[in-house]
Design a protein around this nucleic acid. Sequence first.
DNA 1: TCTTGCCCTTA
DNA 2: GTAAGGGCAAGAT
Length: 999
Amino acid sequence: MIRAMSTENTAAPLGTPLTPDDHLILVDGSTFIFRAYHALPPLTRKPDGLPIGAVSGFCNMLWKLLQEGLSPEEGDEPTHFAVIFDHSSKTFRSDIYPEYKAHRPDPPEDLVPQFGLIRQATRAFSVHCIEQEGFEADDLIATYAVQAAALGARVTIASGDKDLMQLIGPKVKMIDTMKGKTFEEPDVFEKFGVGPDKVVEVQSLAGDSVDNVPGVPGIGLKTAALLINEFGDLETLLSRATEIKQNKRRENLIEFAEQARVSKQLVMLKQDVPVEIPVGDLSVTDIDGPKAVGFLKAMGFTTLTKRVAEATGAEAGNIEPDDFQVPGWDVPDHKGRLSENAPSNRPAAAQTSSSETLSVADGDLMLPATVANARTEAARNSVIDSSAYETVTALDRLKEWVAEAYEVGYVAFDTETTSLDAMQAELVGLSLATAPGRACYVPLGHVDGEGDLLGGGGLVAGQIPLQEALDALKPMLEDRAVLKIAQNLKYDWLVMTRYGVNIAPFDDTMLLSYALDAGVGGNGMDELSERWLGHKPIPFKDICGSGKSMITFDKVPIDKATAYAAEDADVTLRLWQVLKPRLASERMATVYETLERPMAPVLARMEKRGISVDRQMLSRLSGDFAQGMAALEDEIRELAGESFNIGSPKQLGDILFGKMGLPGGKKTKTGAWSTSASVLEDLAAEGHELPSRIVSWRQLSKLKSTYSDALPGYIHPETKRVHTSYALAATTTGRLSSSEPNLQNIPVRTEAGRKIRKAFVAATGHKLISADYSQIELRVLAHMADIPQLKSAFEEGLDIHAMTASEMFGVPIEDMDPMVRRRAKAINFGIIYGISAFGLAAQLGIGRGEASDYIKTYFSRFPGIKDYMEAVKKEVHANGYVTTIFGRKAHYPDVNTKNPSMRAFYERAAINAPIQGSAADILRRAMVRMEDRLTHSKLDAQMLLQVHDELIFEVPEAQVEATICLVREVMEKACEPVLQLSVPLQVDARAADNWDEAH
DNA sequence: TCTTGCCCTTA
DNA sequence: GTAAGGGCAAGAT
């Protein structure tokens, strides 16, 4: 219903003064225009080339305001309503201070022709459209607001401009419709530290860089509020400035007193504009349906036309579109010139470097940072309405969406399926978005909720047949002219490739976020949406439930599915608009384009291939482990004198440290005695039997539950292989992680553990090749910290730990005592981990003082390491992040905490990140190149797994030698050509029938 | 039924 | 001392 325009509304006759029963809404047109412009894709235009993105956004916002009003309370309908615009940029303020708003760039050229259209739109909606020469919209709003409030009427100002907050009072509130936020007196206090009556005083001191209001140098909002609260107002403060204690502040207040006074005149809104239209004349009138529809049709806003026609009862079919000329819009000329950049004419532009995309999308005149900031601002201010999406049930309609994707040049895309496991997931539907708020859901596989034995569970009627939909979508999804935008594309890529669709090219908002903000927070869609859009998307739980009662997406009613799924595409598109421009402005485009984006399809293919595991072997192992555990359990029961749950650290602690009275060592963080392996081993070394049995039992228990029992459950029913899932954006350093199952922690250290590894086997006629970097992190460290001894040791192929020991303790490398080498090895690892005496002592089982001495010795022998560590610490404290050799950033936002142990922790992490992260970058580079190199060499080897410094391939037996050779070359030259590492990279590679023997 | 703590596996 | 994922027990809900 159209409350504001309802015919029941008893509008006051013209000229009648307002009464306390009246409610005036004043819309700040300028705020609306700029937000509408930045919220929508820049290239939205009519077929004749006329840009109309801002007009569209404005109409939608105005309609929403008219339809919903401003407040949920009944009886708050406006009796008076107007949209106020700026007339021109020249006002009395530029006479006072020529620089006022002078540094503002001219409005973007594609916005200019839209100003007039937006005024027409306002009138088409039968809304008063107010502007007056010589005055800003703010002054008109101030005048009307003050007049109305003086008569006792309530006033609501719809704006995002904080300058208007000075008007807030008992009768006047402000609402930011984009943020859905209302501002009343307490909110002003929160923002300015003073009440509305003092806002002007504070602003005149603090100034405003956006409007070029100078203020007083060195005084910001906080200080200004402090001073005004102390002195009352600006004049009092200036006259008593000599009393200020802080030297600089006092001097500035005296020197810039006049500037502050000018600032006050600039920010103080004029409340006595001789308005041409009296406030009483702003009463609401009924909307003229046909008039509004005529305008909307002329603009080509089909959705809104339909809505307005429905709401007003206008017969849309019988109304001709308005026919009008836009002043200053020379159609042929602009069309011809702009079409160079028009999406339909740039098939190759879809996946370009981000700087090119920017210039195409936003005009050559805008700096990347300007675009990025504007997009961030616009995104935060936009509103997401998940009830406004379209459900596509007709093939023709789907084709129109596809056509729109071609027209725009990009489309946000998301799949809905029956499973989180991309290898098992069946397609249930997919969603598309071509502009913020413009999204749809295409249901394809929804079934009736009653999937019982009596039938039911059949496809819900009215869905496009799956194959027809895929046929309509496939060309677009594979076309290089359309950029596909997804959140975690690897998932959708895997699902779609199983339906014969190879998505390309693409952008991935999760990877954009990761390249820009690794370590800041999560990169999941819900979290990004809250962070960047201030919007919490519908939780998956609300749609499908959770736990045992969780339903698969195909059982979700289509209307609910549409709200959820289309919102995902909408949010993804909006996130892309915010994040993509930041690549250029923050110089992270290369990282994203070489280390992140290309990894998604590479990993997807690895996951799809999977690896073979020997189910029988694992089953036998489980039996063996169970036997071993049972034997140990008997012994343990005997030794403990009672039966208890060995898997419970709590019960074990009671037995060991309570009943048996053994000396407890470490405590856990909850204050309980630790029963960790190191504690138990210490007790065992003192001759206690029970702890050593526990250690053995735990080892078997771990191998059984985590590996031999669990792995067979991951064997895919059709491929008969195990398909892990790699997370590309889960670590702060740039490493991958693997889960379901985690194939990056398959045992290797113990004999029993290696039996698990033996169960990973090559297919018949094939071998597994394992190729791993030798000491890659120490090599990276030698390069980055520029340590001569380390570099020459690697150059000469020496045993690096022995060399370190020799350097530190002055012993010859030949016939070195293994204990001495072990100490040096621990120190080398410690360095990589951001060494502490505490940690080294724990590792080597020595005293803290001794460990500290080792570290001192190490630093004196390798002073470059110490310098490097200090430099990294300085960097992370100054910037909040550190970088790898290839420019990846790892953020540590909390590194400046005052908690000394937390601070030390973040510092160690920051020292480790460039080392671990650079090594991860090198692996990524090798992986991105590997497939092409294999193909070009006519090798059929398949990359299956990555374990941080190791790659596993499956290779036909006849190609083993050639493959090892090529793999080694690609890996060892992974830094080139952009970088020549100052140490050689060395790769060890072997082939065998199973992973254990290949390793 | 979900979350936290503990412990263990890898690089 | 760095970076991860996962199983199980026990406590929280």
